[in-house]
C-alpha cells in the first residue's frame, strides 16, 4: 500500500475529518488502505465499503476497545511496520494530536500536522496565528500527515469498492502506561447559543474586563446573544458556555458580529456556518476577514459605543 488512512471512531460513527482525510488520500494518489480500530471497527468499515480505496484493515483487541493513546500508538506502529505505507494520513482531530506524535517519535517518521492544502512543492500549513501560510516538505521515505478540518470536502469522495481484512496485533497490558477514564460532557449553560439567530461575539480585542459590558449592551439593542473566543473565556470575563470554537460550541446564526477576534482556525470551525459574518478588527490582515462578508477595519472601543448610540436613536 502507498497510503494508510487512520480512521477515527466518533461515538460509533466515522469522524467527519476521517472522511475528509480519505478525500485527501485520494488526491495524493496511490493505493489506499484505511485502518479502523476498536469495538466499532466493523461498523465503521461498513461505511467505507462504497469508497474507492483498496482495502480496510480492522483491528479489534480488548486493550484498544476504546481509544487510549498508548494502545492506539502501538497498533498504528505495528501496522506501519508490517505494511510499510509511504504516507500515513489522518484528520487533524484532538485524538490525532494526542497519539500521532507518539507514533512519530517511536518510528522516527516526521509528522507534518494541520495541513490546509497540497501543492506540487509540498504541504501547505498555516503558521504565525494563521496570518501566513508555509509550504513544508520532507526528504524522508515515510511521512505522517494530518489535514485541517475542511481542507478537503467530503462530498468529493470517490466511490468504488474495497475489500476488508483483520490485522492481528500483539498487545499486552504493560504497553498501556496511563489509565484513561470514560469521556464525559460538562453541564452547559442556560443560554442556547447553537440556536441563536444573532450573535455578538467578543475576542481578546475587547482588551479588558471593564469593556465587556459594551458587548452586552450592543447585544441588548440588537436582541442578540453574546458569545466569545477562548481567551475571553480563559480570562474569566464571560462564562465558558459562551465559547465558540473547536472546544466550545458550533454556531450557525443569521448574523455573527465578531468584535476583536483574530479568526484562528479553532475559532472559525465553530462559526463558519454563520449566514452573515460582520467583523470589526483593527488589523486589516486579520484572518477573520478572509471569511467575513463585511470587514470593518477599525477600533471596536471607538466604534461600538457610537454604534450603540445610533442604534438607540433609530
Amino acid at each position: 500500500m502507498d497510503i494508510l488512512v487512520v480512521l477515527e471512531d466518533s461515538q460509533g460513527s466515522l469522524h467527519r475529518l476521517s472522511k475528509e482525510a480519505i478525500v485527501g488520500a485520494q488526491q495524493l494518489g496511490g493505493s489506499i488502505a484505511a485502518l479502523a480500530i476498536g469495538d466499532n471497527a466493523s461498523e465503521i468499515s461498513n461505511v467505507l465499503s462504497s469508497y474507492d480505496i483498496s482495502e480496510i484493515i480492522t483491528v479489534e483487541d480488548e486493550l484498544v476497545s476504546t481509544y487510549n493513546a498508548d494502545g492506539y500508538t502501538e497498533v498504528v506502529k505495528q501496522v506501519i511496520e508490517k505494511e510499510s505505507p509511504k504516507i500515513i494520513v489522518a484528520g487533524h482531530t484532538y485524538q490525532t494530536r494526542d497519539f500521532m506524535p507518539r507514533v512519530s517519535a517511536h518510528l522516527n517518521i516526521p509528522f507534518i500536522p494541520d495541513i490546509v492544502s497540497l501543492s506540487d512543492k509540498g504541504f501547505v500549513k498555516q503558521v504565525l496565528n494563521a496570518k501566513l501560510n508555509a509550504t513544508i516538505s520532507s526528504n524522508r521515505e515515510q511521512i505522517i500527515l494530518s489535514f485541517q478540518s475542511a481542507a478537503f470536502n467530503e462530498e468529493n469522495i470517490q466511490s468504488g469498492s474495497c475489500s476488508s481484512r483483520y490485522f492481528d496485533v500483539i498487545l499486552d497490558a504493560s504497553m498501556i502506561r496511563s489509565t484513561s477514564e470514560k469521556p464525559f460532557q460538562e453541564s452547559l449553560g442556560d443560554v442556547d447559543l447553537e440556536s441563536a439567530e444573532l450573535l455578538v461575539s467578543i475576542g481578546r480585542g475587547i482588551e479588558k474586563e471593564e469593556n465587556i459590558p459594551l458587548a452586552f449592551d450592543l447585544a441588548e439593542v440588537l436582541g442578540a446573544e453574546v458569545s466569545a473566543s477562548r481567551p475571553v473565556v480563559d480570562s474569566g470575563w464571560v462564562d465558558s458556555f459562551r465559547q465558540v470554537g473547536s472546544s466550545g460550541c458550533n454556531v450557525a446564526p443569521k448574523l455573527y458580529f465578531s468584535l476583536g477576534i483574530s479568526g484562528a482556525i479553532q475559532h472559525v470551525v465553530g462559526m463558519k456556518g454563520a449566514k452573515n459574518i460582520l467583523a470589526i478588527n483593527k488589523d486589516k490582515d486579520a484572518p477573520i476577514f478572509e471569511i467575513a462578508d463585511y470587514a470593518v477595519i477599525g477600533d471596536i472601543l471607538e466604534i461600538i459605543p457610537k454604534l450603540i448610540e445610533s442604534l438607540k436613536n433609530q
Binding site: Q126, L132, A134, S138, A292
Partner: peptide
C-alpha cells in the same frame, strides 16, 4: 526530517466588502 521551504500570504476566495 521536515523543512519549511517558503512562506506566503494566504489568498482569500470569499467576496468581502472592506469598510
Amino acid at each position: 526530517s521536515q523543512n519549511i521551504d517558503n512562506i506566503f500570504v494566504p489568498q482569500t476566495s470569499k467576496q468581502t466588502e472592506i469598510i
